[in-house]
Write a protein that binds this DNA or RNA. Structure first.
Lengths: 152, 152
DNA sequence: ATAATTTATATCGTTCACGATGCAAATATA
DNA sequence: TATATTTGCATCGTGAACGATATAAATTAT
């Protein structure tokens, strides 16, 4: 049997594993404040630009609304964000940070650096990261396009 | 505000997104046979070496048994594998492929190539893949070590 | 040999992901 | 203007992930 099915030849398994392990690295840093990693991603989006409709947040994270909606409801229950019906378009739900949600930014200010350092090793150095980013962006873009083609 | 919190500067978000999108690429290819991507990973492990205890499968996939056990039970219910108590060690559950499980290998023989082709693009070429593999392996190894250090 | 510890697996609860579907508001078309 | 279509969000069901905990078998220590 050729190596087609060998786990060690699979890109996807590496991405899947690396993603899970790095999320586990975030866990202790975020759970102190009752946050999960996807919730942290929502905060990143809102810290960048507050008062966004659900759809814009979902698109930025490349997730569907059926993933984001319950996630936002949990964050609302935690008092991190508010969800209010849009005025211009009554279908939209506008998501706003509360002062608690804004305050988390300072409390989590060390997180990016801490996590960043934890992945550095011989084969991943500050100088090799741009190349890695480029390849991952290439994959993401490619798969995004494949997906859009299917929906036509 | 500096770019610390910018989503576009985050390695983890790229890994998380790339992993999700590539899993979505597998979906139509696997769902035809009632398989999910993690179940496909279990098959890869068993095709490589049949008759393994739960723990060996979990370790190979870097997953915990509380993830793998229910997954294996679903696969057993589908008639893809069997789960039998070990004879040497009565605590172990030995997982074996059924003929249906073995037969899936041939049916899925085109999957690796199909998925592999779907991610190729300007920044990810056959010649750049080894470098990408190396960096992902570095990250995985590093995070695996960090994790083991914590458990001591 | 008995007690303490470790190991292998399972159970439980919570939170994603995501396909499928529903519904009401907005927009386009007839 | 009435009807059809699209859009934005929500609900539902299923299958991971994973922390915490449980249980029984095996191993180690006393």
């Amino acid at each position: 049997m050729d190596g087609r099915f060998n786990l060690d030849n699979q890109l996807c398994f590496r991405l899947y594993t690396a993603s899970r392990l790095i999320t586990q690295t975030y866990h202790p840093l975020l759970s102190v404040y009752g946050l999960t990693y996807p919730q942290y991603l929502v905060l990143l989006v809102l810290w960048e630009k507050d008062a966004q409709p659900v759809n814009d947040i979902a698109k930025r994270l490349l997730l569907e609304t059926n993933t984001v909606t319950p996630l936002l409801k949990r964050m609302e229950a935690e008092g991190i964000i508010t969800r209010t019906q849009g005025t211009k378009d009554a279908r939209q739900i506008i998501v706003n940070l509360t002062s608690k949600g804004r305050g988390l930014q300072e409390k989590l200010s060390d997180v990016p650096e801490t996590v960043g350092k934890s992945v550095l090793c011989d084969s991943v150095t500050p100088s090799s990261v741009p190349g890695l980013f480029g390849m991952l962006d290439g994959i993401i873009n490619q798969l995004k396009c494949n997906k859009n083609e299917d929906n036509q």
